[in-house]
């Protein structure tokens, strides 16, 4: 539980701005709102599907602020050519959900 979150503070503040710009309802974004943002990355849809599965930790079909940051973090990693992990690394889990 003392493992630092992979999402750095500067990343988080950048992703929070995007999150807020998408007009979250009850601090949550539906798949309909997140999908076009992730599609903008030009990554293959199967990769984006895996990123969604990793990010929607409670599997409720919505991303909260921390889950959205995980999704964006993985998108940027994939864009840099890094593999999407097949299992949730401890460092990827937001501290609020450990």
């Amino acid at each position: 539980t003392n493992i630092p979150w992979d999402v750095t503070l500067s990343e988080k503040s950048k992703y929070d701005k995007v999150f807020d710009s998408l007009q979250p309802v009850n601090n949550m974004l539906s798949g309909d709102k997140v999908k076009p943002v992730l599609m903008n990355s030009q990554l293959p849809v199967d990769i984006l599907g895996r990123i969604w599965d990793m990010s929607d930790i409670d599997k409720d079909g919505y991303l909260d602020r921390d889950e959205f940051a995980v999704a964006m973090h993985l998108v940027y990693q994939a864009r840099e050519g890094q593999d999407i992990p097949s299992i949730m690394r401890p460092g990827l889990v937001p501290p609020s959900k450990r």
Partner: peptide
């Protein structure tokens, strides 16, 4: 929150 009607929670499937 209402779950999506498709049954899948993944919008990319």
């Amino acid at each position: 929150q209402v779950p999506p009607p498709s049954g899948s929670t993944n919008p990319f499937l």
